[in-house]
């Protein structure tokens, strides 16, 4: 089985979010970038397939040279080859189109992406990709088994979960549950050394087609100070929630 894991390169969850150039660009100053958490669960599940079922695992990112350390980290975790499509990610559709080309050219059977990226939060790249390459698609995926060309997946839905059966070629939008938090791997010294020798292929972008354009960013309005209510005076809290906040 040939697996491709899509890796989004995102600011670490502790990052302070600021903008530059008249609020049109994300300010990367002092920001640590990581593998998108949802993709990390997917990559770890891919390593399980590699080790238990003999799959090959490639990783891909659509982005500029600055994303290479993130791809190297994925190689250090155990991916075989990394691919970087050399163009800045502008919108979900453009990224999905570039990924579709990589998937077709590489003949991948299973594409593991994340449910959503924590920077763009589009939750759109995996579904668009699936449709563009005419593959089956399961998102919010919290469990995945593959047997030959059949697959069984569990998907989180609002208020519960759903078990589905499907077949390869398949694209999934993964999240925690695909593997547990405790199964995530931190690259060790040997992995880091090996990653240096593994191929990181840079391919040129084919289409620059986009459907949306970012105009600018805004930060949420800063909040007023908290109103403290004495623990012995909870009537006051009920009163405030009813009469002032009007939420009960």
């Amino acid at each position: 089985m040939k697996i491709l894991v899509c890796i989004s390169h995102v600011p670490d969850t502790t990052s302070k979010i600021n903008f530059t150039d008249g609020d049109s660009k994300f300010d990367t100053n002092g920001v640590q970038f990581v593998i998108n958490p949802n993709d990390e669960f997917g990559l770890t599940r891919a390593m399980w397939f590699k080790e238990k079922q003999g799959a090959s695992v490639d990783v891909v990112n659509v982005g500029g040279p600055e994303t290479e350390p993130t791809l190297r980290k994925a190689l250090a975790i155990g991916a075989d080859t990394a691919i970087r499509v050399n163009t800045p990610a502008v919108d979900g559709y453009q990224v999905a189109k570039e990924l579709a080309k990589v998937v077709k050219d590489g003949g991948y059977d299973l594409v593991i992406a994340g449910r959503e990226s924590i920077d763009y939060n589009g939750a759109m790249v995996p579904g668009m990709l699936a449709e563009l390459v005419d593959a089956n698609f399961v998102t919010n995926c919290i469990s995945l088994e593959v047997d030959g060309t059949s697959a069984k997946a569990i998907r989180e839905i609002d208020g519960g979960k759903e078990t589905v059966s499907t077949s390869l070629p398949l694209v999934i939008g993964g999240q925690k549950g695909l593997v547990e938090e405790s199964d995530l791997r931190i690259p060790n010294m040997r992995g880091i050394m090996m990653a240096r020798k593994k191929p990181l292929n840079v391919v040129e972008a084919t289409s620059a087609e986009t459907e949306t354009s970012s105009v600018k960013f805004e930060k949420p309005a800063s909040k007023g100070a908290v109103t403290l209510v004495d623990a012995d005076n909870l009537d006051e809290l009920v009163n405030l929630l009813h009469n002032e906040a009007k939420v009960i």
């Binding site: 579904g127 668009m128 839905i157």
Partner: peptide, 23 residues
């Protein structure tokens, strides 16, 4: 923004050649 709508919207976007903004 339900789980179901977020599941179908990207597929619909490709089928309608439509741009999609979520959230």
């Amino acid at each position: 923004s339900s789980a179901d709508s977020k599941y179908l919207a990207p597929l619909l976007a490709v089928n309608l050649d439509a741009g999609y903004a979520s959230n």
